[in-house]
């Protein structure tokens, strides 16, 4: 445990080596939030409610998405692909630590830094914009929303890791990741709550793993536990197990076939 704690601190220290990079990176996140905030404020200018959401509920939704997307999409798993292509993964595998625990520690450090920045930014933005937030329906909704977020984090981790494992067979791995980021950001509810869409389209999207990354946790926080919650829980658990098994299978197969010279 001590060595992982040391690794965790080392990963966090790495962030503060390139300070200007951090400032620019966070500025980009704030700009994305501002765009969505002003867009929805303009949409709600002459109305109280739209698609079942009041203005305060919508502002709360985009704020939650701001937090959740920072934790879901902030990831160091893309570096695995570079390590495989460059052969650096050999050095990691030879070290007396579990490679999987190493990856999880790196992810935890990454998400800790990202969330710390996100909460400070929310505080500043709340003071500047003074938005009206909608409180959660009840404590159970908050707890289950967090549980659902943890499941979402697991799903996104295993998908992202699997995409990096493609580097065992091809050096051209940026295109599938690009595709994943585009599809995930739209179908996870990054721009709008998915239940605003026509019913048939919504039902189709809910069967994919993406709504469980951000949309469902955010919706549960705002509107409470939906009647069909068990249905959502089963689908999300299915995707969690499925993505885990796919990642595991790719890792085992990749390890059997992998070879590298010159390290």
């Amino acid at each position: 445990m001590k060595k992982y704690s040391a690794l965790f601190h080392s990963f966090i220290s790495q962030y503060f080596v390139y300070r200007s990079h951090i400032i620019l990176w966070r500025l980009r996140q704030i700009l994305s939030f501002l765009l969505m905030h002003y867009f929805w404020s303009a949409v709600y200018l002459r109305r109280q409610e739209l698609f079942g959401y009041t203005q305060s509920e919508m502002i709360t939704y985009i704020l939650l998405i701001f937090v959740f997307s920072n934790s879901i999409f902030s990831s160091k798993t893309f570096e695995i692909a570079e390590e495989i292509i460059r052969g650096d993964i050999m050095n990691k595998l030879l070290k007396p630590i579990s490679y999987f625990s190493y990856l999880v520690t790196r992810e935890l450090a990454d998400k800790t830094v990202t969330l710390a920045f996100t909460f400070v930014e929310i505080l500043i933005l709340s003071l500047l914009l003074k938005p009206e937030f909608s409180p959660p329906v009840n404590t159970t909704a908050v707890v289950l929303s967090l549980l659902q977020l943890v499941i979402g984090l697991g799903i996104s981790f295993f998908i992202s890791v699997s995409l990096s494992f493609l580097a065992f067979w091809s050096s051209n791995i940026w295109a599938p990741r690009f595709m994943y980021l585009i599809v995930a950001s739209v179908l996870a509810g990054n721009y709008f709550p998915l239940d605003m869409l026509p019913r048939l389209l919504y039902i189709g999207i809910i069967l994919t793993p993406f709504p469980y990354l951000m949309y469902l946790p955010a919706r549960m926080y705002i509107t409470g536990i939906p009647e069909e919650y068990w249905y959502h829980l089963i689908i999300s658990m299915f995707w969690l197990v499925a993505t885990y098994l796919i990642a595991q299978k790719m890792w085992r197969k990749g390890m059997k076939e992998y070879s590298f010279f010159g390290k």
Binding site: N172, W174, A175, P176, F178, M179, I182, V183, S185, V186
Partner: peptide, 14 residues
């Protein structure tokens, strides 16, 4: 060519 297809489909989709 495969990357172009994926890139185009992704951008079209977004």
């Amino acid at each position: 060519p495969m990357s172009i297809v994926i890139l185009l489909v992704g951008k079209f989709l977004r």
